[in-house]
Design a protein around this nucleic acid. Structure first.
Ligand SMILES: [Zn+2]
Ligand SMILES: [Zn+2]
Ligand SMILES: [Zn+2]
Ligand SMILES: [Zn+2]
Lengths: 350, 350
DNA sequence: ACTGAGAACATGTTCTGTC
DNA sequence: TGACAGAACATGTTCTCAG
C-alpha cells in the first residue's frame, strides 16, 4: 500500500488522506479543526523559534502556523451548509434581520436627513425623509444622531413592534430631568437600547472594514475635536471606548448573522417591562432569537455550537461596558459644553 | 530532584506520585480510574501474550491487568464518602429501603409461613405469621411463594403505600380468567411488580453470594424437577432464565444501594395508573427515587455519574425480559401440570 | 470502493482543592 | 506544604456517513 508511506506534511506522522486541503494525519486534522471551531488563539512563546519537534508537539502556536502555512483552510460558514429543516428555520429568522441591517448600513453609507422629529413622533410611525448625501460634511453629532435614528428605524420595522400590547403605556412612572413621564413599552425598549445598537452597528462596521477601532462612516475619529482637549478624559479611556468592543468582536470573529441576532436578543430585554402582556410578547420574541442563535451555532460549529454560543454571550457584557463608558463621556461632555444643540430624538434617548 | 527519576511501575513513564496505592504516571492513573468508574471490561485478544510495549499502549486488557497486578486498587463506595447535604438526602431515602431489604433477606434466609392469605387480605393489612424455619424442606413452589410474599411485605411497608389515593379503586375494568375485577391502585401496582421484585431480589442474592445464576435460598436449582423433563423448554431457554439478569448485574457491579433504588423505581410505575391523584402520588414517589439514584451515581462516580445512571437504566429492560421468560415458562408449566396447587397470593399475582 | 468531514470515543496533561 | 484524588482540558484514534 503506497498509502502507508505517505507522511503528514505538518508533523511527519503517517497520513492517510487529505484533510482541509492538505495531506495530513488525523491528529493534525483534528488539531486544526479545533483551533478554528473553538476559535483558539495560540501564540508561540518563543516568537516562532521553536525546534521542529516542539512545533509539532508542545507549541500550539507553531503547530497551528505550520497547518496554515502548509495550506490548510477551513472556515465554517452558514451559507455553505446544505439545506435542511433547521437551516430553513434559522434562515427564516435571519432573512428579515439581514435585510434590515443591510438597509441600515446603506442608509448610513449614502443618506442623511435634515428633519428633526422627536421619538414620540417616530413612534407614531412618522419617518424622517432621507435624502442622498452629496458633498456635505457631517459633524460627529450628526453621525451619532443618524446612527441612532437608523437603528430606531431598524427596530421599528420588526413585525412584533406593531403588537398592540407594546403600544400601551407602562404603569410605572419614570422620572427624568423633564419631569414625570409615562412611556409606552415601545418607547422603553427603544430608549434603553438604541444608543447601544448604534454603537454595536458602528463596531460591526469597523470589523467589516477590518479596522480595530470605531470611526465615523467618512473615516473620522468618533470624538468631536473638543473632547480631545478635555482633561477629564484620559487617552486610555478614550482609546478604550474606541476599541474595547471592536477588539472583542474581532477576537470572536463575529459573523454578520451572529451580529444581527445578538442585536435583537439584546433589544428584546423582557427585564425592562415589569410584567404583563407586553413582557410576554418581548419574552417570546427574545426566545425566538435566542433559539435561532443557538441553532445557528450548532449548525455552523457542530458539536462546538454550545461553546460558541456561550462565547457570544460574553459579548453582551462588553457591549454594556462600552456603552457605560460612552454614557459617562456623554454626561461629562454635556456638562462641559452646555451650549451644544442636539436633535430632538437624541435628547429623547440619552 | 529525585522525583524526576522515578518511573511508573506500569509503563515506565516518569512518575511523580503514588496513585491508587502505586507509584505511577498520571496517564496510568487516569486509565485505571476510567476502567473502574466507567466499568469497562477490556479483554486481551492474545490471551495476555502481548509484548511489554503492547501491554502499556495498545492492549487495554493487558494494561489494566498490569495496573491490578502492580497493586492498584480503588472501588468507589457510597459509605466512604464524606458527609455533605447531598449524601444526607440520598442516605435518608436509602435508609428505609436498605432496612426493608435486609428484613426481606433475613425472612427469606430464616423464616417461612404456613398461612395462606389472599392478596386482598394482605392489602387489608393482615400479615401472615412467619415462623423460624427449622429442618423442613421447601419445594420450589414454596420458595417462589415466599419470595413473592416477602416482596409484597417490602412494598406494603413503604410509607406512601398508605396514601388514601392508592386505596381507591380503579375505574378501569380488568379482565382476568376469574372474570371481571376492579382493583385498587395498590393491587395494580403490586400484582404487576411483585413477581419481578422477587426475581430481582433472587438475582441480587446470587450476586451477593457470588453465584452466576439464580438458585433457591437452600441452594437448589430454581426449577422444579418436572420442568427439566419438559420438552417445551430448551436447555438454552432455561439457562437464560437462570443467568440473564444475574449476568447483567454482575457486569454492572450493581451495588446494594443501586439495587434497592432500582427496585422501587420500577415498582412506582405511573404508567399503570391511568390518571388522577393516585398517579400523582406514584409519579412523585418515583421521581424521588429516580433523583436519589442519579444523585447517588453522581456522588459515587463523580462526573461519570450520568453515564453510570444510564447503564443502570439498561438494567430495566433486562429485568423485564427475564420476567417475560419466566412468565412464558409459568404459563406453559401450568398447562402441563394443571394439578399443581398454588397458594392464594401466588394465584392472585400470576 | 474511496475519500474526507465530523462525531464519538479513548487517552494524556494540567489544574484545583483538600487533607 | 506535599501528596494525591478528581475535574477539566487538550490531544489522539476510530467510527460513521455522505458524496
Ligand atoms: Zn500531522
Ligand atoms: Zn513555538
Ligand atoms: Zn504509567
Ligand atoms: Zn494484551
Amino acid at each position: 500500500m503506497e498509502n502507508s508511506f505517505r507522511k503528514c506534511v505538518i508533523c511527519e506522522r503517517p497520513a492517510f488522506s487529505h484533510n482541509y486541503g492538505v495531506l495530513s494525519c488525523d491528529a493534525c486534522k483534528m488539531f486544526f479543526r479545533r483551533v478554528v471551531t473553538l476559535n483558539r488563539d495560540y501564540k508561540c512563546k518563543k516568537d516562532g523559534l521553536c525546534t521542529l519537534k516542539e512545533k509539532t508537539t508542545t507549541c500550539k502556536g507553531c503547530r497551528y502556523k505550520l497547518c496554515q502555512d502548509s495550506g490548510m483552510t477551513f472556515q465554517p460558514n452558514f451559507m455553505d451548509l446544505k439545506d435542511n429543516d433547521q437551516k430553513m428555520d434559522v434562515t427564516n429568522v435571519l432573512g428579515v434581520l439581514l435585510f434590515l441591517d443591510a438597509r441600515r448600513s446603506k442608509q448610513m453609507k449614502t443618506q442623511f436627513t435634515d428633519e428633526n422629529f422627536s421619538l414620540v413622533q417616530v413612534l407614531e410611525n412618522r419617518r424622517m425623509k432621507l435624502k442622498t448625501r452629496r458633498s456635505q460634511i457631517l459633524t460627529n453629532h450628526d453621525w451619532s444622531f443618524f446612527g441612532i435614528y437608523t437603528s430606531i428605524e431598524f427596530f421599528m420595522s420588526l413585525d412584533f413592534m406593531a403588537d398592540e400590547h407594546l403600544q400601551t403605556r407602562d404603569k410605572v412612572i419614570l422620572y427624568n430631568r423633564n419631569g414625570v413621564t409615562v412611556k409606552t413599552f415601545q418607547e422603553i425598549l427603544l430608549t434603553s437600547f438604541c444608543v447601544k445598537a448604534s454603537l454595536f452597528a458602528s463596531a460591526m462596521r469597523a470589523v467589516k472594514e477590518k479596522r480595530d477601532k470605531l470611526m465615523t462612516v467618512d473615516g473620522k475619529d468618533v470624538y468631536p475635536d473638543e473632547i480631545l482637549k478635555f482633561k477629564q478624559f484620559s487617552l486610555e479611556f478614550l482609546k478604550r471606548i474606541r476599541s474595547l468592543l471592536v477588539a472583542k468582536m474581532i477576537e470572536l470573529r463575529l459573523t454578520i448573522e451572529e451580529f444581527v441576532l445578538c442585536n435583537v436578543i439584546l433589544f428584546c430585554n423582557p427585564a425592562l417591562l415589569i410584567t404583563g402582556a407586553a413582557q410576554d410578547v418581548i419574552s417570546r420574541q427574545q426566545n425566538i432569537y435566542t433559539s435561532a442563535l443557538l441553532e445557528y451555532c450548532n449548525l455552523v460549529y457542530g458539536k462546538n455550537g454550545p461553546s460558541r454560543f456561550t462565547d457570544l454571550l460574553s459579548l453582551f457584557h462588553v457591549i454594556n461596558k462600552n456603552f457605560e463608558d460612552v454614557q459617562a463621556m456623554t454626561v461629562i461632555f454635556k456638562l462641559c459644553s452646555p451650549q451644544t444643540i442636539y436633535r430632538r430624538i437624541v435628547t429623547d434617548v440619552i
